[in-house]
């Protein structure tokens, strides 16, 4: 039990997927202009990552490993991820048109969110069991959502600040996320690797 809890904590905060591993920066920069959209994006990504982690584990252990098809790993994982994203996209479009519009191009682009593929591949690399794989996926996604939320809050305030012209927009956002990353370094060493 303790082990699982630590895994969750470690993936969500200490080895945060965005701020420590620097995965999934594209949606982090793209969908962090409002807290509501960020929350929607976080939930959608959480759904996809968790689903993809589970599906990729099954794929790896029931298909790729038994038939020695390791060379198809990336290809087949992407296939599964793309399908999961398509499914999510349809579901969001039906259930929440407003969120669908505010997420815009970033919704189908979850497919290319390197955090999703990264988590699936790291699962294989670490040799986690099914439950741990799912937990690792969920924890990473949780970390992604937390950072997205915090960052969106900061950017909402940033939008009200009188940032010098040279820094307004992306530069200030990048400096902000780097400072956020600096703050997250405080978590380092909390759990011995």
């Amino acid at each position: 039990m303790n082990e699982y809890l630590l895994l969750l904590l470690s993936t969500a905060l200490i080895n945060n997927v965005v701020l420590v591993k620097f995965l999934g920066l594209c949606p982090t920069m793209g969908v962090s202009k409002s807290v509501d959209a960020a929350l929607g994006m976080g939930l959608a990504t959480t759904f996809v990552i968790t689903l993809a982690a589970a599906a990729s584990w099954m794929l790896e252990h029931w298909l790729l490993a038994p038939f020695e098809l390791g060379f198809l790993r990336i290809l087949s994982f992407i296939l599964v991820i793309a399908a999961a994203v398509q499914f999510t996209e349809m579901a969001i479009r039906k259930t929440s048109p407003a969120l669908y519009e505010s997420l815009g191009i970033y919704l189908p682009l979850i497919t290319t969110n390197c955090a999703v593929l990264g988590v699936a591949l790291l699962n294989v690399q670490q040799g986690y069991g099914f439950l741990k794989s799912v937990l690792f996926g969920f924890g990473s996604a949780l970390g992604f959502t937390i950072v997205l939320l915090i960052f969106a809050g900061l950017r909402e305030r940033l939008a009200l600040a009188s940032v010098p012209a040279a820094f307004s927009g992306a530069p200030a956002a990048f400096i902000t996320i780097s400072l956020l990353s600096l703050a997250f370094m405080g978590f380092s060493g909390l759990i011995p690797a």
């Binding site: 794929l59 298909l63 038939f67 098809l69 060379f71 198809l72 290809l75 087949s76 296939l79 599964v80 399908a83 398509q86 499914f87 349809m90 579901a91 479009r93 039906k94 048109p97």
Partner: peptide, 30 residues
């Protein structure tokens, strides 16, 4: 095996998405 497995995978996922599309169909552009 590679060709077969990918084909089956694609077919299964395609079928799932096809069903989902039915289920989540949105009419026109409101």
């Amino acid at each position: 095996a590679a060709i077969l497995s990918l084909t089956i995978l694609g077919a299964v996922l395609g079928a799932v998405l096809g069903v989902a599309n039915r289920f989540f169909h949105v009419e026109g552009n409101p």
